[in-house]
Write a protein that binds this DNA or RNA. Structure first.
Length: 568
DNA sequence: GCCGTTTTCGGCCCGACTGTTTTCAGTCG
């Protein structure tokens, strides 16, 4: 069972406990345990097998450790099964509706026997008999039933496009300060909404301007201090006013994550201080808040990069002076996975080279698809040899820039590669990846990849889980085994920058880092513009605590070649 | 249910807003 699945069981149990009306702190304990476990880089199954004491993790005590062990070893969770008899799982759907929390859901169920969205929508008329269901709330539920507004998550890259346009519009009115906070600032791969902070000076004017933005689908509310809208396309945006004196504290507060902030406030408390969105207070006296750095500093902490603020050890790392120096796009010397019009790309070798040079790179590896992908006009051995000749010729023209020869070779079902070794050995960079047979068992998928690693010419394992966010789940594969083997054999693991791939994800990157495997951040561009996607891959790498030294395409060409040749 | 240098009980992060009330519960971030 994956960590995520175990965590989900605990969270589900927590939600049902909350609906039942159990002690709030007990509920939170289960939620918290779920959060801690899903963030673990190592499979819990493995830890338990090795006899690791789970109570070592913060937030997991004797009882929870036992529960987790029960889940892992017996694949059952008795307490959950029991509470499910009393409170059906479908109640959880109701919690997704804005305005409905545990208490109201309980009342719906106990008084009206409503246990699903569908039932709720059928019985909206009868709600007035219930305590705590006034006119407005009924209206809201009715609307929800009519529109079926889901809680759609947006890719970070999509949200960025919406945000850029909106920001340009907002800046016309010249708010003194305007910052984005929330999960967007933390560069999460998907975001539910966008939080904007503006200074209070001319806020009424700013808000008025904001709600007149032409691309708004709906204004949810506009008050003295906050306005909420839904943009065309469905993205929700909150804009808040903030006193300039409190801007840093508000930015810290609204950037989150929630878990990070909880810990920050606990630390404050231990020092007799109090942190809220207005500042840091000693009794009633404000001692910091204008700048975000101050908030951390006064608590004896260092400023922490937003990408790290997930309570995955960043606060402890700061105390031990072990925070990573995160990689930036400027550290990259080149891109080692991209396509041209030789297969399914749009631009020519030369056009790609020029675009790469313009980005400030010193090398690009051309890695078109191999022959199995006929739909992408994949290259066979003969065409590849021709392309190699062409690249050699081009390199004589290109000054101060190098095209590396390469190929994205399909891993076949049995783990062999789609092209013959005689040709692979001619290449500078051999990228391998999965493009079909995604639903093999974990064991077979892992063996398939490890077998492919046996090939002595392989350099990079691209988009290792083959997931596509919101479209396709990751394949079942034992990443730890794969990463250990990759480290052993000097194969770099890819962080693919396509906005819906971002594969490896942040947690897997942390695992790879811990194991000591090398990684590479690639655009997988199919045209010259998509080379810029590299930003998204860098975001993901940063969320995975990556430093320059862990990423091979930060190497100068000479050193890169040494690394690539260390195989075979 | 977790946690502990004020420890085995009695705390547990904090504040705003909304809508429902008539002093505040419930939800949210």
């Amino acid at each position: 069972m994956r960590n995520k699945e175990i965590a989900n069981l605990l969270k589900t149990y927590a939600s049902l406990l909350a609906i039942k009306g159990e002690n709030f702190f007990k509920v939170r304990a289960y939620q918290e345990a779920g959060r801690v476990l899903e963030n673990l880089p190592t499979p819990i199954e493995k830890l338990i097998k090795e006899g690791y004491d789970l109570t070592q993790f913060e937030g997991i005590g004797k009882d929870l450790a036992k529960t987790v062990e029960e889940i892992v070893t017996t694949s059952t969770f008795k307490k959950l099964e029991e509470i499910k008899k009393e409170y059906p799982l479908s109640l959880l759907e109701l919690l997704e509706i804005e305005g409905l929390g545990a208490k109201r859901v309980n009342r719906l169920y106990k008084k009206l026997k409503i246990s699903s969205k569908q039932q709720l929508c059928q019985e909206v008329k009868n709600l007035s008999t219930l305590e705590g269901f006034g006119k407005k709330l009924q209206q809201k539920i009715l609307q929800y039933c009519q529109e079926g507004v889901g809680s759609k998550k947006f890719l970070w890259a999509e949200a960025k496009e919406y945000l850029q346009e909106l920001q340009e519009y907002l800046l016309k009115i010249d708010p003194k300060k305007l910052s984005v906070a929330g999960s967007f600032r933390r560069k999460k791969e998907v975001v539910g909404d966008i939080d904007l902070l503006a200074s209070k000076d001319n806020f009424q004017e700013v808000i008025k301007h904001f709600i007149q933005y032409p691309k708004i689908k709906k204004v949810l509310g506009a008050g003295e201090t906050k306005a909420s809208v839904i943009l065309e396309g469905g993205l929700k945006v909150d804009l808040r006013s903030v006193e300039e004196e409190s801007f840093g504290a508000a930015l810290q507060y609204f950037t989150g994550s929630k878990a990070h902030n909880v810990k920050i406030r606990k630390i404050a408390q231990e020092q007799g201080l109090k942190v809220n969105e207005y500042g840091v207070f000693k009794k009633d006296k404000k001692v910091a808040g204008k700048e975000e750095e101050e908030v951390y500093k006064i608590l004896g902490l260092c400023w922490i990069e937003p990408e790290l603020r997930e309570d995955r050890g960043e606060i402890e790392a700061c105390k031990e002076n072990k925070l990573p120096k995160l990689i930036t796009t400027k550290d990259l010397q080149g891109d080692l996975h991209l396509h041209t019009n030789w297969s399914d790309g749009r631009h020519s070798l030369l056009e790609m080279a020029k675009a790469g040079k313009e980005l400030g790179y010193s090398y690009l590896a051309i890695t078109d698809h191999s022959k199995r992908l006929t739909i992408a006009n994949g290259l066979d051995e003969k065409r590849l040899l021709k392309q190699i000749e062409e690249i050699k010729r081009l390199n004589e023209e290109l000054k101060g820039f190098t095209l590396l020869t390469g190929m994205e070779v399909d891993i076949l079902e049995d783990g062999s590669l789609d092209l013959k070794d005689e040709v692979l050995k001619e290449l500078d960079v051999v990228v391998i990846s999965l493009h079909y047979k995604f639903n093999l068992s974990k064991k077979r998928q892992t063996l398939r990849v490890l077998k492919a690693f046996d090939n002595p010419y392989v350099n990079i394992f691209a988009h290792p889980t083959a997931r596509r966010i919101n479209l396709r789940p990751p394949v079942e594969i034992d990443l730890e085994k794969v990463f250990l083997e990759a480290k052993e054999r000097n194969i770099a693991l890819e962080i693919n920058s396509q906005p819906d791939r971002l594969d490896l994800d942040d947690k897997s990157i942390l695992l790879a880092k811990k194991i000591g495997a090398k990684m590479v951040i690639n655009s997988d561009a199919h045209n010259i513009y998509a080379l810029d996607y590299i930003e998204y891959g860098v975001n993901q790498a940063r969320r995975g605590w990556c430093e320059k030294t862990e990423i091979i395409n930060t190497l100068k060409l000479k050193d890169l070649k040494t690394f690539l040749r260390s195989r075979g």
